[in-house]
Design a protein around this nucleic acid. Structure first.
Length: 453
RNA sequence: GUGGAUGUAGCUCAGUUGGUUAGAGCACUGGAUUGUGGUUCCAGGGGUCGUGGGUUCAAGUCCCAUCUUCCACCCCA
């Protein structure tokens, strides 16, 4: 008995219809990236674990897929560690490779390794799958595609602005209503500094991030539980509950952060970006959102996140600035900024909003019924001519029953069928049938070639 | 990693307080129709009831374990 086939948890197969729709998303994104001067690169699915570990925080390390070494890996492992059953320590000995967790860290590695071959500021895009050993749920997969755009080797805030323009353009073309949320890590650092707990910055941002979900009271409870004194929590209140327009928020923040150099720098950065935006025709709603922390701990400046307004699915695009990601690989003082589009979530959004254009579906335009050897030969030269004119054409590979062939054409939603049997060959003609209306007429071969399909 | 729900044909699901040979729709194959699809009618193939154990005279149905999928938490695209 054959075993039932299946695929690993959190992974998916894609049908042709789904692939056409996915490619529509990739093509849209790609063409916009190109328009802004970004060029494609690729990196391997697996990286050395030393490249990946420690870059995504403790939580991230747990979510890395690790690849067992080849050969008799256990024979080389330390007997004592094996006996201890210490999974983390033993992993170092039996696994040296892992699947990439995102595209940003491999990109940093790539930049350091190829620094002499690249033109800086280097603008690249990269569309490849990444893997996370997370528990799958709605909009969350273990294998999914990211579409990254990054500029590395430039501190200019013009880059942040251009990325927002790209985001706006992508979602306008895809017809997805979005809110683009902005924040700046320096502002968060400033806040932590002001209340005298710069070391607690991660705890503070994680807790603030939950404001919408668990409410102010629980946020404060969590902060207290994380060892933040009541006094500092009190100081935080005006920041957590910040309201109003972006300008109003900034005015208030300036007061709170007046003694923090980093904090003011962060505000200045955000003001500059907002200024650029005011002169542009970016359509999406831009919201300064201090609760936006993002887990990745390598961000140092701008933080960007995009949410779909009409569909509840988490963020569909996110990113930020990282000042020293290449530093860990030995290249100092190279700042980069980039965002990542979550193609799979964007797909899910478009499914719900019915946002795929019909043209994404188009496949074969003309189908030739196969009547047998002699008829095949007659058709093949016509097919060649049609294809050379760019018409998507196919012939059924076997002379089976007509019902079966017509059925095939019908299921593939092919709009035109050509029938060429004995009668047609004798008169050097073909019969062209419109599958939608059912009409058919016998015409000359030249007329078919020039037919407006 | 924690908690909850779920699993019956390729797909969507029905299956009574445990009781004979587990059903339907869609899909598939053949026929009505040997050069005409999408409609209709007829016939047919397809099931270790997720997997492994247990209770029972008897388990798709009850119990335990395990896996899958989904949902929430953690975290995130």
């Amino acid at each position: 008995m054959a075993q039932k086939p299946s695929i690993p948890k959190g992974t998916r197969d894609f049908l042709p219809v789904e692939m056409l729709n996915r490619e529509y998303i990739f093509d849209t994104i790609k063409s916009i990236f190109r328009k802004y001067g970004f060029l494609p690169i690729e990196t391997p699915a697996m990286e050395n674990l030393s490249t990946l570990l420690g870059k995504y925080g403790e939580e991230g390390d747990k979510l890395l897929f690790k690849i067992l070494n080849s050969g008799d890996f256990l024979a080389k492992a330390d007997e004592k560690l094996l006996a201890e059953k210490n999974s983390i320590k033993i992993t170092n000995q039996i696994s040296e490779k892992g699947l990439r967790y995102d595209l940003t860290v491999p990109f940093a590695r790539y930049v350091v390794q190829h620094r002499n071959d690249l033109v800086f500021p280097f603008k690249r895009y990269q569309i490849q799958p990444v893997w996370r050993a997370d528990r799958p749920q709605k909009g969350r997969y273990r294998e999914f595609f990211q579409c990254d755009v990054d500029v590395i080797g430039s501190n200019s805030l013009l880059n942040e602005f251009e990325l927002i323009q790209i985001i706006d353009e992508v979602f306008n073309v895809l017809k997805i209503n979005t809110v683009i949320k902005l924040n700046n890590r320096k502002i968060l650092s400033g806040i932590a500094e002001i209340i005298g707990h710069a070391d607690k910055i991660i705890d503070i941002t994680v807790a603030i991030d939950k404001l919408d979900k668990i409410g102010l009271e629980n946020v404060n409870k969590e902060l207290l539980a994380n060892g933040l004194p009541q006094e500092a929590i009190n100081q935080l209140q005006p920041v957590i509950g910040l309201k109003g327009s972006n300008d109003e928020k900034i005015t208030q923040l300036k007061k709170v952060l007046k003694d923090s150099e980093v904090g003011l720098k962060g505000i200045d950065e955000i003001e500059t970006v907002l200024e650029y935006l005011k002169t542009s025709d970016v359509k999406a709603e831009i919201e300064l959102d201090l609760t936006l922390a993002r887990g990745l701990n390598y961000y140092t400046g701008a933080i960007i996140e995009v949410k779909a307004k009409d569909v509840q699915i988490g963020s569909i695009c996110g990113g930020g600035r990282y000042d020293d990601l290449t530093g860990i690989f030995g290249l100092k003082d190279v700042s980069g900024v980039g965002v990542s589009f979550g193609a799979d979530r964007i797909y899910d959004v478009l499914v719900q909003t019915n946002g795929f254009p019909e043209t994404a579906m188009n496949s074969t335009q003309v189908f030739f019924v196969n009547f047998g050897k002699r008829e095949e030969l007659y058709c093949l030269s016509i097919i060649e001519k049609l294809r050379s004119r760019g018409v998507k054409t196919e012939i059924y590979p076997e002379p089976t029953k007509m019902k079966k062939q017509m059925n095939y054409a019908n299921k593939k939603q092919i709009p035109f069928v050509v029938l060429a049997g004995e009668n047609e060959i004798e008169n050097q003609k073909v019969t062209l049938k419109n599958m939608e209306t059912g009409e058919q007429k016998t015409i000359g071969v030249d007329e078919l070639l020039n037919f407006d399909l």
